[in-house]
Amino acid sequence: MSSRWASIRFTVNGQSRTVHAPPMKRLLDVLREDLHLTGAKEGCGEGECGSCSVRMNGELVNSCLIPVLQAEGAQIQTVEGLAPAIDSGGALHSLQEAFLQCGGAQCGICTPGMLMAAAQLLERNPHPSREEIREGLGGNLCRCTGFARIFASVLAASTHAGSEKKPDAR
């Protein structure tokens, strides 16, 4: 075994964390195994399905393709950080609320990744068109919903965000 373990420090959902791990260990495994944040899921393990999506320094990334050493110093947000106060009676994130209302989740395996991709999209583009939603969520696969309810959920969350613009009527 040639690898020397490293101490790697980053911020997860606003909290500073230090892990001791092989530098090539996948960020996904560090989140799930070392930090017990099991929201991000492994679907394909090769960048195709998006179920492991998290945000790193404000960008959407697939945590299955990130060696944890490359997360050194980064700000990471996982689905657990979307509504941080939920355990103490706080509200859900508007996207989570919309997924509940519109039936955006069935088995739920894809949902954490979908939520992170949608959060990324709405942060950069608060009122996306259907086409923009399709692109923003294009790397996230769902085997259950047929996507229509997921797109509807994102549209609902975006219109909820106090828009003048109506969801496009086509």
Binding site: M1, S2, M24, P67, L69
Partner: peptide, 13 residues
């Protein structure tokens, strides 16, 4: 089969 992270060294100068 999945690769073993401990079989690879990675550094970030």
């Amino acid at each position: 089969m999945r690769g073993n992270p401990e079989a690879h060294e990675l550094i970030a100068p």
